[in-house]
Design a binder for these strands. Structure first.
Lengths: 192, 192
DNA sequence: ATTGAAGCGGAGGTGCGCCTCCGCTAGAGT
DNA sequence: ACTCTAGCGGAGGCGCACCTCCGCTTCAAT
């Protein structure tokens, strides 16, 4: 849906049908799937997704012949949006831009977890997504490192896992999540 | 199984049957269930668990009438073992004792995740487990805080979530996991 | 050794999600 | 307006996991 200059965005576009009604259904299925994954994780029922989207189960299967196709596309769509977000942060302060992007990244972790679980890491789409993610977010960390705001004995992959893990956890409330995330980022930050 | 002075250990003991063969089956089921949860997460099939344990499905249901009963008991058993581990660290250096225990804690997170997912947080056993965990691990953090090794603007709950989140993530290799965990703990540590 | 009851196991009924298939609908080109 | 084809929907077959039920086995108390 969200168009970005990153390769991952083509994955979603390539599948999208041309006819008007078909495209609408396609979008509705993607939205419904994202919602269902957030709610039920990898076990979300395909028939439930079709129901949410207001289409027949047959339509779901025509657009996404296998469960894997659907999961991959939802995932790619999320990653594409996240990549787009990184571009809009180019003019902010390095450290602030980095943490703002990580905040957005955190929001996408729920879906990502479900997808990873379902696909069991056995998909080459992860490679493409990883590349796009690194291309989008990597520069934010490098910028912060260059101005001495972030420690240099870590790479972007380390940072993503750190934030990913923490945001995937259930907290008592939003305040605790922010507190814990900020403690972890104190481990990343240098100078103050 | 593992006997500790913590209330949570009674949950497992209370269920354990008295007759010899029944007790053996009970233990085998618990082991098989822990293994299955580690491997397949919350979706582990009960029939598969019975098969692994070498007992009939009927035996599983007699011991654990509902899926919830089985999950709760496995979880309680893990927590009891973890509580026991904390007691054995009383004579170590404060910071070292804390990190050693957190390392052990990390090992139990896989099962814990599966159980939490299955029970959807809707069980009062979590309350009991939380209390036992805090009673066991809390003093380790307080000790480290008292000698100035750990920051004081956080509590034990924050620390558990921090470690729990990170260890629940998939890393490229063990080295990366340790690196990330150590970065996060740098955020906790004070004075060097 | 006897016996009763506690425990065992797995066949089979039930329900649910997966996926296919095909008669019907509606968009797009002329 | 007409047509023809891409697209639609959902009934229904299939398989798997859940759970019950009951005849058989094993323990342990006397």
């Amino acid at each position: 849906m969200t168009a970005t200059p990153f390769p991952v965005s083509e994955i979603v576009a390539a599948r999208r049908p041309h006819r008007k009604d078909a495209a609408r259904n396609y979008d509705a299925l993607l939205d419904a799937a994202r919602e269902a994954f957030t709610e039920h994780g990898a076990d979300a029922s395909l028939e439930d997704i079709a129901r949410r989207a207001g289409v027949g189960i047959g339509t779901l299967y025509r657009n996404f012949p296998t469960r894997r196709d659907l999961f991959e596309t939802v995932y790619a769509d999320e990653v594409a949006a996240l990549c787009g977000a990184a571009l809009e942060l180019a003019d902010r302060e390095p450290w602030e831009a980095l943490t703002a992007w990580l905040g957005r990244f955190a929001g996408y972790m729920v879906t990502k977890r479900a997808v990873r679980e379902a696909l069991n890491g056995e998909s080459d789409i992860f490679q493409t997504c990883r590349e796009s993610m690194y291309a989008a977010g990597g520069p934010l960390l490098e910028r912060a490192q260059r101005v001495g705001a972030a420690r240099t004995d870590m790479d972007f992959g380390d940072l993503l896992r750190l934030v990913a893990g923490i945001t995937a956890t259930n907290f008592e409330d939003a305040a605790q999540r922010d507190r814990v995330l900020s403690i972890a980022l104190d481990g990343v930050r240098t100078g103050r």
